[in-house]
């Protein structure tokens, strides 16, 4: 039971924090169509978080009243949104892993978990498609977009190791999928170096604290109030 509890928290926290980061683009995206697309993905993710939280407790309580040290998301999702290349690259690397994990969880003996995972997998298939399209366009676009995409890859790579810890993710398959797209985009897969970790144990980057301060402010200012 504990294992499922922890798993659901990890799944939910990943999605809430990533959805929150994506929502920061609303009204500021490079094209109107992308404002809509990124908001769609953010909504899917926050929706998924809400469902996973629901399996272990009160979603709002879990989202708004836990401290950073209690959060179990991977570090990669809490990093600031960066430029569009960073956002897309992070979305790509995360979503490929997420899809694999969710497909596996769709077979879980826990019926409720399996149901949520199956629905989430459907949505994530689209996230992968969308991110892949942009990785190709940015990698194989202009010199500037290529440079930004490569820089994003370098900045994010050290956070990818954590995606496979205690997860139902086939790291080999992930690497193959990701390498194929990166190379097709005329980009280089970064060398594996030291992988940053800690999110799953509540040891986060400095970024999460600021994110939660902003996200939780109303609930903290008006304890017990209804919204």
């Amino acid at each position: 039971m504990d294992a499922i509890h922890d798993l659901c928290l990890r799944l939910a926290d990943d999605r809430l924090i990533l959805g929150h980061r994506l929502s920061e683009w609303c009204g500021h995206a490079p094209i109107l169509e992308e404002d809509i697309a990124l908001a769609n993905i953010a909504l899917d993710l926050i929706g998924q978080a809400n469902l996973f939280y629901g399996l272990v407790g009160d979603p709002d309580q879990l989202a708004y009243l836990r401290e950073a040290i209690e959060y179990r998301n991977a570090l990669i999702v809490e990093l600031p949104k960066g430029d569009f290349a960073f956002t897309i690259m992070r979305q790509f690397l995360f979503s490929v892993a997420a899809l694999s994990q969710l497909e596996s969880l769709s077979q879980s003996p826990s019926k409720e978990l399996a149901g949520i995972a199956a629905k989430a997998a459907k949505e994530t298939r689209y996230h992968v498609r969308h991110a892949t399209d942009w990785v190709l366009k940015l990698g194989d676009g202009t010199e500037e977009s290529h440079r930004r995409a490569q820089d994003a890859l370098h900045a994010l790579w050290r956070y990818t190791g954590e995606l496979f810890d205690r997860n139902h993710v086939d790291a080999t398959q992930w690497r193959k999928t990701v390498t194929d797209v990166i190379q097709k985009a005329t980009l280089k897969v970064p060398e594996d170096g030291y992988m940053q970790r800690g999110g799953r144990e509540g040891r986060h980057t400095e970024h999460l604290g600021h994110l939660l301060s902003e996200m939780q402010i109303l609930q903290r200012s008006y304890p017990g109030a209804k919204w």
Binding site: E33, I36, A37, N40, R129, H130, D133, K137
Partner: peptide, 11 residues
């Protein structure tokens, strides 16, 4: 075409 299809779906 690919991004047109995605945009159409989103919009």
């Amino acid at each position: 075409a690919e991004s047109a299809l995605q945009n159409a779906r989103d919009v």
